[in-house]
Amino acid sequence: TRVETATETAWISLVTALHLVLGLSAVLGLLLLRKQFPAHYRRLRHALW
């Protein structure tokens, strides 16, 4: 049972790390898009919101 708990903890930390990386890359991508293609960014924002 101890090994299972350790594996679960590892999976949870892995998933958390993946979510963090995905969130950060999404934010960075949006910032880059905003900087380089303001028109595209505006259109995207209108489409999303």
Rank of each mutant, 00 (worst) to 15 (best):
T1I: 15
T1C: 10
T1P: 01
T1E: 13
T1M: 14
T1F: 13
T1S: 12
R2S: 14
R2W: 14
R2A: 13
R2P: 13
R2Q: 14
R2G: 10
R2D: 13
V3P: 01
V3S: 05
V3L: 11
V3G: 02
V3N: 08
V3I: 14
E4A: 13
E4M: 12
E4I: 13
E4Y: 13
E4N: 12
E4Q: 15
E4C: 05
T5H: 07
T5F: 05
T5I: 05
T5K: 02
T5N: 09
T5Y: 01
T5P: 03
T5C: 06
T5V: 08
T5E: 06
T5G: 05
A6C: 10
A6Q: 11
A6L: 07
A6W: 07
A6D: 02
A6T: 10
T7V: 13
T7Y: 15
T7L: 12
T7I: 10
T7M: 15
T7N: 12
E8A: 05
E8G: 02
E8T: 02
E8W: 01
E8F: 03
E8Q: 00
E8C: 00
T9N: 06
T9M: 14
T9E: 11
T9W: 11
T9C: 08
T9V: 14
A10V: 07
A10W: 09
A10T: 06
A10Q: 10
A10G: 11
A10S: 11
A10F: 07
A10I: 06
A10H: 05
W11Y: 13
W11G: 02
W11E: 05
W11I: 13
W11L: 06
W11H: 09
W11A: 02
W11D: 08
I12Y: 09
I12V: 13
I12G: 03
I12P: 00
I12K: 10
I12S: 06
I12N: 08
I12A: 09
S13M: 14
S13E: 02
S13Y: 10
S13L: 14
S13P: 03
L14W: 11
L14T: 01
L14C: 05
L14I: 04
L14M: 15
L14G: 01
L14S: 01
L14Q: 03
V15P: 02
V15C: 06
V15A: 02
V15R: 02
V15H: 08
V15K: 04
V15G: 02
T16A: 13
T16E: 00
T16S: 11
T16K: 03
T16P: 01
T16N: 04
T16R: 03
T16Q: 03
A17G: 09
A17C: 11
A17Q: 00
A17R: 08
L18Q: 03
L18S: 00
L18P: 03
L18M: 09
L18D: 01
L18F: 15
H19L: 10
H19T: 13
H19M: 08
H19R: 06
H19E: 08
H19C: 15
L20I: 13
L20V: 12
L20K: 09
L20G: 09
L20F: 13
V21L: 15
V21C: 15
V21M: 14
V21W: 00
V21A: 15
V21N: 01
V21E: 01
L22M: 12
L22P: 11
L22Y: 05
L22K: 04
G23M: 14
G23E: 03
G23C: 15
G23W: 07
G23Q: 01
G23N: 08
G23K: 09
G23S: 10
G23H: 04
L24C: 07
L24Y: 03
L24F: 13
L24E: 03
L24W: 12
S25D: 05
S25W: 00
S25R: 04
A26V: 14
A26E: 00
A26D: 04
A26W: 11
A26M: 11
A26N: 04
V27C: 11
V27S: 04
V27T: 11
V27N: 04
V27I: 14
V27M: 11
L28T: 02
L28H: 06
L28G: 01
L28I: 03
G29H: 05
G29E: 09
G29M: 14
G29I: 12
G29P: 03
G29S: 12
L30N: 01
L30P: 08
L30F: 14
L30I: 12
L31F: 06
L31P: 04
L31Q: 01
L31D: 02
L31G: 05
L32A: 00
L32S: 00
L32F: 04
L32C: 06
L32K: 07
L32G: 06
L33E: 04
L33T: 03
L33N: 03
L33W: 10
R34S: 08
R34T: 11
R34F: 06
R34Q: 05
R34E: 06
R34M: 11
R34V: 13
R34K: 14
K35P: 00
K35H: 14
K35A: 14
K35E: 05
K35F: 04
K35L: 11
K35V: 10
K35T: 06
K35N: 09
Q36C: 05
Q36D: 04
Q36N: 00
Q36P: 05
F37P: 02
F37M: 00
F37N: 02
F37R: 06
F37W: 07
F37G: 03
F37Q: 00
P38C: 00
P38G: 08
P38Y: 00
P38H: 09
P38V: 00
P38Q: 00
A39G: 14
A39F: 10
A39R: 11
A39H: 15
A39Y: 12
A39T: 14
A39D: 15
H40Q: 14
H40R: 10
H40G: 12
H40D: 06
H40K: 11
Y41L: 08
Y41K: 04
Y41W: 15
Y41R: 01
Y41H: 10
Y41F: 15
Y41I: 10
Y41Q: 00
R42M: 11
R42H: 13
R42Q: 12
R42I: 09
R42D: 12
R43V: 11
R43W: 10
R43P: 09
R43Q: 10
R43G: 09
R43F: 08
R43H: 07
R43K: 13
L44C: 11
L44E: 02
L44K: 02
L44H: 02
L44R: 05
L44I: 14
R45N: 02
R45A: 08
R45I: 09
R45M: 10
R45W: 07
R45L: 07
R45Q: 10
R45V: 10
R45S: 07
H46D: 09
H46F: 01
H46V: 10
H46I: 05
H46T: 04
H46W: 00
H46Y: 02
A47G: 09
A47C: 12
A47Y: 12
A47Q: 10
A47R: 14
A47W: 11
L48R: 05
L48Y: 04
W49G: 01
W49V: 01
W49N: 07
W49D: 00
W49P: 00
